[in-house]
Computed example of a mutant assay.
Amino acid sequence: MQQNAIRHHSFGKPLEVLKLESIEQPQPQAGEVRVRLERATINPSDYGMIGGSYGSLRELPAVAGREGVGVVEALGAGVSGVEIGTRVRFPGEDGAWQASACVAAEDLLVVPAEVPVDQAAISFINPPTAYCLLKKIVDLQAGDWVVQNAGNSAVGLSVIQMAKAFGLKTISQVRREELVEPLKAMGADHVVLEGSGWPKSVADLTGGAPVRLALNSIGGESAIDQIKALGEGGTQVTFGGMVGDKVRFPTRFLIFNDVRLTGFWWDQFGKRHGVDAVRAIMAEVYAMMADGRLKLPIEQSYPFSEYKAAIQHDSQPRLGKILLHP
């Protein structure tokens, strides 16, 4: 039996190398289940994998995509304790932009029934990244200040809402003025425009309190502004590099302000700490999604047959995520 998949046979620009193809539907082996895709997400890291620049790459030809949600539709021999129809994380190791995939039953991450399917689809990378950035890097206390760039990204929106739930204060950097009010409506304390010279007035924004943590996913001057705004002993965490611009080494701030620079990668966290640690963090994420403390906007969902339109839409200014479905 055949199924649809969005694949690439070489690395390059998505619209140039991706193709909608028919491939053999996988059959679950002993101890495995087959999961049928409901929704898959388009993430910036997907483009890195398609382009060949990401930290870990798949063997070609490769199915694109890293994140999605589905339901168990077939059980392999010897599988027990798993029911057909259970909603789970779609197995993304071999690519999420395909109609179905198999995974060991013991590795399933079950999604609580009270989490909406569209929210579940975008729950596995960006929200846990935001949770770890706020909880695993610096010992933040209620009332502490955090600054982040790309405040309108999925991680950024997660940080805003989680920080509010944790009693933290946020300054979110954005590039477009029309994003200021929507982010404030989600709980952002301050929203500042990139290039506006905002670090000079950071003390006014925080009431004189130091900024303890800076979250950088852009690089370039945006990252330098964060370092200027950090308080003494503050930490900047880099977890992305959207613009790819060089960042001037902040010698003065390292010496006189004792600023710390570090990095974070959710994939690496999972490998280092294991499945139990990942499940514990996901339980926290799902609790917030279930009770409404965390709700991320969805822009639109496209069928696989319209993947080119989906990628083009994803490149346009927006606030919500773009999803794919078979």
Rank of each mutant, 00 (worst) to 15 (best):
A5P: 11
R7K: 14
H8A: 04
P14V: 05
L15G: 13
L15Q: 06
I23N: 06
R36I: 00
L37K: 07
E38H: 15
N43P: 14
D46H: 13
Y54F: 13
A64M: 11
G65Y: 12
V69K: 09
V69P: 11
V71E: 12
V71T: 13
G76S: 07
G76I: 11
I84M: 13
P91A: 05
G92E: 09
G95N: 12
A96T: 11
A96G: 15
A96E: 04
C102R: 05
V103E: 07
L108E: 02
P112A: 04
A113I: 10
A121Y: 11
N126H: 09
S158G: 10
I160N: 05
A163T: 06
A163P: 11
K164A: 10
K169P: 03
T170H: 07
E178L: 06
P182W: 07
K184G: 02
K184Q: 14
A185T: 12
H190W: 09
V192G: 03
L193Y: 09
W198G: 03
P199V: 06
G207N: 01
A209F: 02
L213Y: 02
G220N: 01
G220H: 03
E221G: 11
I224Y: 06
M242V: 03
M242L: 15
R248L: 15
L261C: 10
F269Y: 15
G270K: 08
K271A: 14
R272W: 10
A280C: 05
I281Q: 03
E284W: 11
M289W: 00
D291S: 08
G292M: 00
G292L: 09
P303N: 04
P303W: 09
Q312W: 08
S315I: 04
K321R: 15
H325G: 13
